[in-house]
């Protein structure tokens, strides 16, 4: 009887002393609990690496039209030893173009999202914290932004600004803040009613201190997740614009313009759609997985 009793109590003491067996850093624990974060983060890192070192990694000049890059009948070459992802209908190396295209995609995705983040967060905070007429005004503008067909809006703005990489991310960023503003406002409304915000007021904090040191850190988690997801989305949007012909102008390689050029010949050269399509899938999936993981990492209570 007494022998039977001993092991459980010892085990209990050990469990109490070391609930997780051994002390691990929060980072490691999050990785263990959410392995997909790791996968997503790795995918994003690969993308960033490729974008930075595209000129070193690419075997050829992406814009060079190879004389031996086309078949005798003028058709693109299928993947082979020289051109590992084949060539396009102008005899350019698809692999090199794909690597350079990562630059455009990432640049547009990241900068557009940062612009949206900045505008959306500023407007959302003002709207949520100060309320009253300024809240109504900002939210009505947000309603208009959300009600308007987004692509149409961007197309119109890019057309006015002249298509270029800079103007694309400017247009996407300047027009894409509405959902961020909504989420930030909702978060601020919820957080500012918490008693710790009241406590800060009771302690005599100045308004900027309450806004930036207390409210902002407590609302950033969903905003960062949203922004990470938005990077993937904006990369898709850049492709859409380039596909429609108002994005990156030829001969600059972008995944969207590669898809646009490829669709005319995809019946006999399907690799022209596969590779840019897969690259897009890879990047967007990477950012989405990372975004989901960050949400957990930013939650101080979920992982102990």
């Amino acid at each position: 009887m007494s022998q039977a009793m001993t092991p459980p109590s010892t085990k209990l003491t050990q469990t109490l002393a070391h609930p997780q067996g051994k002390v691990q850093s929060k980072f490691v624990r999050v990785l263990k609990a959410y392995p997909l974060v790791f996968v997503g983060g790795l995918m994003v890192l690969v993308l960033i690496f490729v974008a930075i070192f595209a000129d070193k990694l690419a075997p050829f000049n992406p814009d060079y039209q190879f004389a031996n890059g086309l078949a005798a009948d003028g058709a693109p070459l299928a993947p082979n030893h020289t051109f590992i992802m084949g060539t396009d209908d102008l005899g350019r190396d698809v692999y090199s173009r794909l690597l350079y295209g990562a630059r455009i995609s990432l640049e547009v995705g990241v900068f557009a999202s940062l612009i949206s983040l900045f505008i959306g967060t500023s407007l959302g905070i003002i709207s949520g914290y100060y309320g009253k007429w300024i809240d109504s005004l900002i939210m009505r503008i947000t309603d208009i932004m959300l009600a308007f067909p987004f692509i149409l809006f961007v197309v119109a703005l890019v057309a006015v600004l002249k298509p270029s990489v800079d103007n694309i991310f400017l247009a996407i960023g300047v027009l894409g803040w509405a959902s961020t503003a909504r989420i930030v406002r909702a978060q601020v409304l919820a957080v500012k009613e918490f008693e710790y915000v009241q406590a800060a007021r009771a302690l005599g904090s100045r308004q900027w201190r309450i806004l930036f040191r207390i409210v902002l850190p407590n609302i950033m988690a969903p905003v960062i997740v949203l922004t990470t997801l938005a990077i993937g989305n904006n990369m898709l949007l850049e492709s859409t614009l380039s596909f429609l012909g108002i994005g990156v102008q030829p001969p600059t390689p972008s995944w969207g313009s590669m898809l646009a050029e490829g669709q005319q010949v995809f019946e006999y050269a399907p690799w022209l759609l596969y590779y840019p399509g897969l690259a897009l899938l890879f990047s967007v999936l990477g950012f989405n997985l990372l975004g989901d993981g960050l949400r957990e990492l930013f939650n101080p209570r979920r992982v102990r």
């Binding site: 008693e195 710790y196 009241q198 406590a199 800060a200 407590n218 209570r301």
Partner: peptide, 12 residues
């Protein structure tokens, strides 16, 4: 002031 809800009154 000391608040009622000890869960909501401390910044997490």
């Amino acid at each position: 002031i000391v608040f009622q809800d000890p869960y909501a009154s401390l910044n997490p």
